[in-house]
Structure formats: C-alpha cells, structure tokens
Design a protein around this nucleic acid. Sequence first.
DNA 1: CAGTGGTCTAGACCACGCC
DNA 2: GCGTGGTCTAGACCACTGG
Lengths: 236, 236
Amino acid sequence: MAENIPIYQQITSYIKEYIETGIYQKGNIIPSEQEFCNQFNTSRMTVRKAIDELVNDGYLYRIQGRGTFVSHWVYRKSLEVLGFSYHMKQLGYTPSSQIISFEINIPQPSIAERLKILPTENVFYLSRVRMADLEPIAIENVYLPEKRFPGLDTYSFEENSLYEILKTKYNAEVVLKQEKIHAVMVAGHDARILFGKEKGVGMRMNGVDFDANMTPVAYADSIYHGTKYIFDVIFR
Amino acid sequence: MAENIPIYQQITSYIKEYIETGIYQKGNIIPSEQEFCNQFNTSRMTVRKAIDELVNDGYLYRIQGRGTFVSHWVYRKSLEVLGFSYHMKQLGYTPSSQIISFEINIPQPSIAERLKILPTENVFYLSRVRMADLEPIAIENVYLPEKRFPGLDTYSFEENSLYEILKTKYNAEVVLKQEKIHAVMVAGHDARILFGKEKGVGMRMNGVDFDANMTPVAYADSIYHGTKYIFDVIFR
DNA sequence: CAGTGGTCTAGACCACGCC
DNA sequence: GCGTGGTCTAGACCACTGG
C-alpha cells in the first residue's frame, strides 16, 4: 500500500487513464465526487483538488447540479513546451537535427536581458536544422546561460533532445514559454535550407523558456516551414 | 458588508489589483497564506483556492518553504479568447471593422461538423476586415449556428464586438478556442485589402470557439497581416 | 425531492528553505 | 527552529438541475 504519491495525484492519474483508454467516453458523465471519496477512501476536498486540475487542463468540465463530464474535443497539451523532439514523436515522425553551429559567445544585449544575465556572462549558442523524417521543418537558434549549464558542450545534440538533457542533467524543466509568433518571408541561406529555393513563407517564433521558479532557462529564435508545420494551439 | 461574492474571488481580485497597481512588485514576495487568512478572516483552504487560481493564470508562482511571488514577465492573458476588439483596445489601438458580407447560408459539411450541427441547419456567415487605427490588420470569416443565435442579423458588427454580443445577448461566453496557425502567402483580393498589393505574407488562424459547456459557438477562419500583427502567446 | 457540484471551516501533519 | 507552502480531514450549508 505504502504510497508517497499524493492521493489527489493518484486520482488524476486514474481518471486520465480512464479517459485515454476510453472507459470514460467523450461527453459522458464521470462518477460523482462522493463516489470518488468512497472509492479512494478520502475526503471531498482532496477529490475536488484532483478534478480541479483536470478541469484546468481541459480534460473535464463541470455543470453545477448535473455532474462532471469528459471534454468533447481531442485533448492536446501545449506540446510546444516539451520541445520539438517530443512534439514530432507525438505526431508520429522521427525527429533529427543537423547542427549548424554550437559555440560559446558573449550574448547580444537584448538576449542577455531576456535571460536575465549580465551582458558579460557567456552563453551557449546552438543552431540546428530540425527535421521530421529527414525533411527540414525548422531552423532553431537557442541561447543558454553558460553559468547555469556548465559542460553543456560535452553533449551531442544531433540525436539528443535539448530539453531532455536540461531536465535530466541540470534539473531544469521548462514549464512555461513566452513566445512571439509572426509570419515572415524567408530568403537566402535559411530559405535554401528549408525550401530548397531562394524564397518561401515561414513562421518566426521567438521567446523565453522558464523553469518552475520562473528563472529564464533559454532564449530561442526559430523559423518554421510555413506549410509543413502547423501550430495547434488551445487558448483559454 | 453583505457580500454574495465568494471570499476566494474577493481575494483573487484583491491580489490582482495589488499586482496591477504595482503594490506587489514583479519578482517580489507577497504576504503568506496565514496573513491572508487573518486579513480576510477566513480559513487557509479558501486562501489557497484564491492563490491557486492566480498561480494557474500565471500571475503568481510558489516556492515551497519560501513563499509566493509575483511572476516576472509582463502578465498577459490569452487575449485571443476575448476577441479582436478587446485585444486591440488592450494594446492601445482603436478597433474597427468593415463588413464584407453577412448572410445566412447552408454550411460546408466540414464546418457543420466542427460546429456539431447538422449539414442542413443554417449558419450565419460574417466576413469582416478588421482594422486597428484604420489600418487593415486581418480578414476574419466567422460561421455561427443560426439556431443558437436567432436574430443575430439584427445587430451591427461595424462597431460592436461580436464576442460581446454573444456574451451579453445570448449568454454564450467563449472560454476556449482550439486553433490551427500557419504562415501563408496571401494573393489576389485578400492581398489587395491587407497589403495594397498583389502578394504578401500572412498568418492563417482557423479554429472553433467553445463556451463553458464545451458547446461549439463559432468557427472562425482568419488571415492576419504578417508584419503588422504579432501573436504573443504563453505556453504551459 | 434527492443528488450534484460550489463554497467554506478549523483544525492537522509533512516537506522544504533559511538562519 | 521557525515560517513557508503542500497535503489532507470530516464535516457543513448553499445553489442548481433533474425527475
């Protein structure tokens, strides 16, 4: 029995699994809060905390006086916070990268400011072509503070997920991204890589990644192929 | 005294106001949960519910053992759920619209499906040029089920916010949007409106708006000016 | 009416950060 | 050790939807 996982997390996992396996069907009602209290032998506030979380994440919705229901739309997390590699795998593609450059630099002042470091502190600069099933999908430029990630340059980012390494090796899990997105005309070198010709339409996405303490972890500036990559976003 | 507003909502409003007026500064600690208990003469669970909400919305973050802090970045709600008019006002522009067409149609099957109505049920089709300070920013095409919004065609959408009317007149508040976003080359009629020339780069955004019961309220398909409009999005 | 979710109480013990 | 947030209890009353 001995569980150190909080009860409310056990309940959210339980309900999530039942949704994902289709035991709780889209649009259908799920057991009442009281029933979960009995099943998990816990108090109602604990059950409510579990359900609150799933409502917030968009899995469930409540109607007062009637019950709690499974959301209708196909659930999709904001996959972008989990990085390109994870995202592509979810979509069924094989992600890969081709390193354009990986070096240690003095940052541009605007980038230092976004990373909340001094302009005299070094940053890693990692530039990669991101591919799905060997087709170029995006050009990604990432800047990371050297101080926070000593020895980062000893890893290979051809196959490894940057986010995975930050999380497992440096205990820096990205939980939030603030991004600016707009359409751009891509030309020159970037266009030849992404489109194989001199011009093409792309989407520029640039912003800062934060960890749970709201400390900036990385600044990324990427250009995505306009037609091969479609963002799927949920606004609340 | 007599307040029918829940205590936890009073507390969220209180804290929000203190953040917005700068009394609680970005990155600084706010009073402990116990202090709010005393101040509002309530229990800790109620205070936590209030703070939970603000943490979820990105206003605050907590560090166990230390305290609760105001988020560093400039707070910005997913303004897109509130519609173009509201969004532009927030940014300090004067929004306006020019109606291209407003009619009742049989929907395309794909649109009927997204709105979860029968293909034989009518939809309103509203097409507008959206402007900020009289500059064309986007072309927006919206489809709404006639059954849900009888008499919608009696309103003027030159100045009025569509979302405002849905909310106040039809009790249909949009709380969630699921959108697909990608960059496109705009040409022909649309390009002449947005760019004043034959070609330009734009961002296409199309998706469904849902109310609190997760019932589809509208389907929108819009094209935004690539350089005049920059999406500012927070992913969690 | 009974059953659901919405709000709230007045405590409790634990895990963590800091001094 | 002390104060913070993290989890949890065992009740309570209210507001709403349904039959």
